[in-house]
Design a protein around this nucleic acid. Structure first.
Length: 425
RNA sequence: GCGAACGUAGUGUAGUGGUUAGCACUAGAACCUGUGGAGUUCUCAGGGGGAGUUCGAAUCUCCUCGUUCGCCCCA
């Protein structure tokens, strides 16, 4: 009787082979750009108190309401796998009294996140985000810098047609007013809305703004817009954001219907997508300002701004575009050994190559020279080193040019030098 | 949470209600223990799992699990 096969949990993936390369590439691109701007890397726990997300991300967001992996410990603590990064970073900021550091404090992170939802294109239960948080600065430059950094990262990854959508959601002053206004308007046309939006009208009226249904869009097109109802301060802030964006030459599209699903956003919200791509899967990066969150989580009233990149989404996009970020590194040297003595000495020799930073392949587990050369040939190396019983005794080694079949015997002490010389050509 | 399609070796696939379920590539083993992508031979699926229909199922039905895609929502 066969046992049920052990397999990975729904929506979770092993990162193997090519996928690894992409991960590495993205990580490196993020790291390089972000280092320039003096962001410090932060690693926060993957588990946090559930309450952190309930308060931070928002008790009424779908994420918290139905998408968290939660557990309680033997000691009775109620913990959840982090569904997003910002609350953890903010918690850390507060817990370590980072308000006493020079402000703003700038962090970046790269790691796994978890959301219990149905997997589909670009959505997994365990996924990775690369994120930025700038805490302690209210100036609009920061908003733009965050966008600029993400933009640069995607450029670095050779993305071409990027579209930045931006909007302002106002603050705790003006948003509630706007919301009332909007609800009043929508209520008057409720019967024109799709069933989903009828539900949203009660739960999350702002979301109706980005409904894809045609009839809803018609209703929305005459609806009051947030940008027209910002308070003076928010209006000024948003104006500055747009001015700065113009200044750095980043193309953007002011989308008055852009709303985000997390409760803590205030003022600036943005998304970076690939033009022409399906919107829902196409959001590569999203973020915004969250001026109320630090206080909400028990810190001082501190403005902050951040965003996060969906690593898997970026990878998918790269794959679709067939952007080649790396050429497979072809090993140039292969070490073939024959006989016990030679094999023993080969181990040491290989180390010499490693310290000399010359990549060398081998198959020490194979004993037949024919097989080894075959492998070498298959790998497409330029030179094979043939190290047999005779050579081991004489402290020499054969350098074989795989193309011309020319073989030179050199002293083993000189082999690295000889190889270097040949590789230069 | 809702909907659709799919699930045969490591990978990609073929096939019919019924004797040994094929093929390609890959991988491993053996032969040859000093010179080229090799060859030959061999090995690896009991058909995602479970139940049912049937004399008999991988092929039909149901359940379950999973994958993929869509809705919701989000990175």
């Amino acid at each position: 009787m066969k046992k049920t096969k052990l397999q990975r949990p729904t929506g979770m993936h092993d990162v193997l082979g090519e996928e690894q390369e992409y991960f590495q590439k993205i990580h490196d691109a993020v790291k390089e750009v972000v280092n320039f701007y003096h962001f410090k890397k932060i690693i926060t726990p993957i588990l946090e108190e559930t309450e952190l997300f309930v308060k931070g991300t928002g008790a009424f967001t779908d994420i918290v309401e139905k998408e968290m992996f939660s557990l309680h410990t033997k000691g009775g603590d109620h913990l959840s796998l982090r569904p997003e990064g910002t609350p953890g970073v903010v918690r850390s900021y507060i817990e370590h009294g980072m308000k006493n550091l020079p402000q703003p404090v700038k962090f970046w992170y790269f790691g796994p996140f978890f959301r219990y939802e149905r997997p589909q294109a670009g959505r997994y239960r365990q996924f990775h985000q690369a994120g930025l948080e700038v805490i302690g600065e209210k100036n609009a430059v920061v908003d733009v810098q965050v966008i600029q950094i993400f933009y640069s990262i995607l450029k670095k990854l050779k993305f071409k047609n990027l579209l930045i959508e931006i909007n302002s959601l106002g603050d705790s002053q003006c948003r509630p007013n706007y919301r009332r206004l909007l609800v009043r308007y929508l209520k008057s046309r409720e019967n024109l809305l799709c069933p989903d939006c009828k539900r949203r009208l009660k739960e999350n009226p702002l979301r109706i703004l980005d409904c894809k249904e045609e009839k809803c869009q018609e209703v929305v097109s005459d609806a009051p817009q947030m940008v027209d109802h910002l308070c003076d301060e928010c209006k000024l802030h948003f104006k500055e954001v747009l001015e700065f964006l113009d200044e750095v030459g980043i193309p953007y599209y002011l989308n008055p219907y852009l709303v985000r699903g997390l409760d803590y956003y205030t003022r600036t919200v943005f998304e970076i997508i690939e033009e022409g791509e399906n919107r829902s899967q196409g959001t590569l990066i999203a973020g915004g300002r969250y001026d109320n969150l630090i206080k909400l989580l028990g810190g001082k009233d501190t403005p902050a701004c951040g965003g996060a990149m969906g690593v898997e989404r970026v990878i998918n996009a790269l794959k679709n575009k067939k952007i080649s970020l790396f050429q497979p590194s072809v090993p140039e040297i292969y070490l073939a050994q024959l006989g016990v003595l030679a094999k023993r000495k080969s181990l040491k020799l290989l180390e010499n190559f490693r310290t000399a930073k010359i990549p060398v392949s081998e198959s020490f587990s194979k004993d037949s020279l024919g097989v080894q050369l075959g492998i070498a040939s298959k790998m497409g190396v330029k030179y094979a080193l043939i190290f047999g019983q005779k050579e081991a005794l004489e402290d020499s080694i054969i350098i074989r040019n795989m193309k011309t079949s020319r073989q030179d015997t050199v002293k083993i002490a000189n082999v690295i030098k000889e190889i270097r010389k040949r590789l230069k050509k």
